[in-house]
Amino acid sequence: MTMNDQPTIITSISKGRAWVFGDNINTDIIIPFRFKSRTNDPYEMAKYAMYGFDPDFHKKISKGDIVIAGRNFGGGSSREQAPVALKYAGISAVIAESFARIFYRNAFTIGLPALEIPEIKGKVNQGDEIKIDITKFTAENIRTKETFHARKVPEFMRQMLLEGGLVEYYKKYKQFPWIQS
């Protein structure tokens, strides 16, 4: 995709091709420090999405594609630029067996669906078409017709995600989502 496209609009249902990764994909792989610390522009950050895996990753993906990963996705740094880079590069969701704590919070905060599905391991091949539903918090592998249920999150986190993240939520309601719950 080109860098000036809008990021993937989060809707309750989306479809995309799977990019399959292993365990412990840390935030230095997702976006190295020396790039993320030299810009405050999400589209610039997107050029370095998954740089540690493949510097051309952002050119190879299509809008809506989905990252599938193993254990502890997003470990390491607190950098919010990690989910931001993935989202603005066109990734519509990350599904992992488990997430590192700060990445998981950050993903919801910036409006990138993060679905924790321990049994996803071995159930998705590279390029499979995946359908996710963030109202129901499910993911379906279209090829195998298998549906997986993600770990539930507090309702305020889901609401925040459906609005597109904390900033969008605040702009709409002039209130932080956890205050009401």
Partner: peptide, 30 residues
């Protein structure tokens, strides 16, 4: 702290942990 190693302050019995930038903004606000 918007830095994962904020947990260092646990050495003096503080509850200290890392979070992201936008959440720090929310803390500054409220």
């Amino acid at each position: 702290g918007a830095d994962s190693h904020t947990c260092q302050a646990g050495c003096v019995s503080a509850f200290a942990t890392g979070i992201g930038s936008t959440e720090i903004a929310a803390v500054w606000a409220t």
